[in-house]
Design a protein around this nucleic acid. Structure first.
Length: 108
DNA sequence: TCACTGACAAGGG
DNA sequence: ACCCTTGCCAGTG
């Protein structure tokens, strides 16, 4: 697992529409490669790539589990709120409706 | 090489 | 709805 895998995770993450969120597992399933844990690892390696909207990736409960890895812990929430996503107690409100899966790309 | 650690997830109780 | 276990796999010491 090297840079190629990381790039794939970054590419998928770039496809998440503003105002929507996806999950580590959804990305792992879509790539049929690696695991949800590795998606988190790949996103950790995206901190320098400012064109990757890593704030749109949350865990399966809609929790902002990666917030502490941003420059400051509030960045993830404020970026989501700027896109209209409501966050309370580090959790996306109405998560089922805001959730977006990369598999939607195939439905067209 | 072994053990442990995670931006995780699914299923059972 | 919460807690626990199991599977996951690259990094790290």
């Amino acid at each position: 697992m090297g840079a190629a895998y990381i790039e794939q995770v970054h590419d998928v993450t770039r496809l998440v529409p503003p105002g929507r969120v996806t999950t580590y597992g959804a990305i792992a399933d879509f790539l049929t490669l690696g695991s949800a844990r590795m998606v988190g690892w790949a996103l950790f390696n995206s901190l320098t790539a400012d064109d990757v909207p890593a704030h749109r990736v949350v865990n399966r409960k809609g929790e902002l589990s990666g917030r502490k890895y941003f420059r400051t812990p509030d960045v993830m929430q404020s970026r989501l709120e700027a896109e209209g996503v409501v966050v309370i107690d580090d959790r996306v409100v109405d998560f089922e409706r805001v959730f977006w899966s990369p598999t939607e790309l195939l439905d067209q």
